[in-house]
Design a protein around this nucleic acid. Structure first.
Lengths: 255, 255
DNA sequence: AACATCGGTCGGCATTACCGAACGAGGGTC
DNA sequence: GACCCTCGTTCGGTAATGCCGACCGATGTT
């Protein structure tokens, strides 16, 4: 593999940086964060602005992401095969389970939500599509880790963030949980990311049986789990049926 | 203004190309479409793949957009001030009008939908956020053209596409319609993009009174318009109130 | 079975984009 | 109100950079 084009890599790093910090960033901040000379960063930003990937606040001169990215992002959704093949099954799963359904795929050490069906009641819910969830504290992420869809090593170096007192932060307990998920064929998360919330997820396999994503249901812990705090068997059944159906659609031979 | 970085411009052109054709593209197609040598296109694609901006089908070797763009696109929505200041007003407008509400901003000779509130009934609707509408055949686009938010010239060169028999395709009728919109302060589109559908829109102004976007309601022509085919005055009133409120929030002095 | 097509690789050339210092405007402070 | 500091921007020299076009090997087509 020969060398990648560094100006493009740098441009991508700038876009990721702007996406991370939710506020606008100045040229100096961008340049120092990436170890670039001010002039270099300015040239890249000028180009990105020219193609509408970044916008500049005329008053302060600070930069933020641009409108063209929104269209590219939704165009990605249109061509994504995992998502398009899952939509019907996800709708049905939400109806049968009465809970919100989300699909995730690994991205940069997190879980990218590529589809989201609201819980079928009239409560106000926010669309999670495009959001990034943590690998170690979401049912989708734990399943992706357990079945090798994304490397585990980066998590074992630094202590992962503890969102609640139930978050698995020690490598050994995380490893044990992942082994259990591999045995059972599904994984759960009970108040590990947010108190009162729980979720269960199952892997989706593509051609060759490789795990390419995960599908999960999530909601209030008292609906997802029984009185002992274990996920409801009925939910697990309908979830796994949906995951198997999608895998079959994607060309996974038999799972 | 010095020269922009060509490799980044080329990378952006490739991404736009992949977003345009809804199917996967091969290396050769990409290279010839942009007039690049195969090796050059391959180097750029390899880099874009490395940063998750494109994905490659392992079976066919063809390329498509990548997952990182989805996250960047939604991050743009988070920081976009026009959208965040509009959300509450758009919700209220949908409730008061009983119709779907959309917000648009110009992008590359089209209208980018940056917010969409469903019509407040239980019918199935698809989210338009991230979609691109034509300038000359949508109420949002006609308003943006009329108030100079995007240049008119590119439309006058080639005949714009006629979606229905009501689409304004002749420069003179388009110009007359835009003048009328400027006089009235709002614009409509009646079955110009799709038979049976209509919409009305009003401009949103930012600091200095410059038009930065448009807000509109759209739906079945028999609900939007009266029996004479003219937009309902009551709808126009609530729409313009919402547009003025958002403009005030954005810092437009008085309009 | 031969061919055509495709994605991918490699080395040489010169164009390319990088760097660092200097500029000018804006805002904050004393 | 004048100073100073910081920020975004510009500019020219340099050599590192990415571009080009010919060449491989695999795939599937006729």
């Amino acid at each position: 593999m020969a060398g990648p084009v560094q100006s493009i890599e740098r441009a991508a790093a700038i876009l990721r940086l702007l996406a991370g910090g939710s506020r606008r960033l100045g040229l100096g901040e961008v340049a120092s964060s990436l170890g670039l000379a001010k002039g270099t960063a300015h040239g890249i930003l000028r180009t990105l602005q020219h193609v509408d990937f970044v916008e500049q606040d005329p008053a302060t001169g600070k930069y933020q992401l641009g409108a063209a990215l929104l269209h590219l992002g939704t165009s990605y959704l249109d061509v994504n095969e995992l998502r398009s093949r899952s939509i019907n099954w996800a709708d049905a799963l939400a109806a049968r389970s009465g809970e919100a359904v989300r699909l995730g795929t690994p991205l940069e050490g997190r879980v990218l939500v590529i589809h989201h069906v609201f819980r079928p009641d009239d409560t106000l819910q926010t669309l999670d599509v495009g959001a990034l969830l943590p690998l170690h504290a979401s049912s989708l992420g734990k399943v992706l880790l357990a079945f090798g869809a994304t490397p585990l090593e980066p998590l074992l170096d630094g202590e992962p963030e503890a969102y609640t007192r139930h978050t698995l932060v020690h490598p050994e307990e995380l490893n044990r949980a992942l082994g259990e998920i591999r045995d059972l064929g599904w994984g759960a998360e009970v108040q590990e990311m947010s108190m009162g919330e729980a979720g269960i997820a199952a892997p989706i396999r593509g051609q060759g049986g490789l795990v390419v994503g995960a599908i999960g249901v999530s909601g209030a812990v008292e609906r997802i789990c029984d009185t002992k705090g274990r996920p409801q068997p009925a939910l697990i059944t309908v979830l796994r049926e949906a995951a198997r159906a999608i895998s079959r659609d994607l060309g996974a031979a038999r799972w």
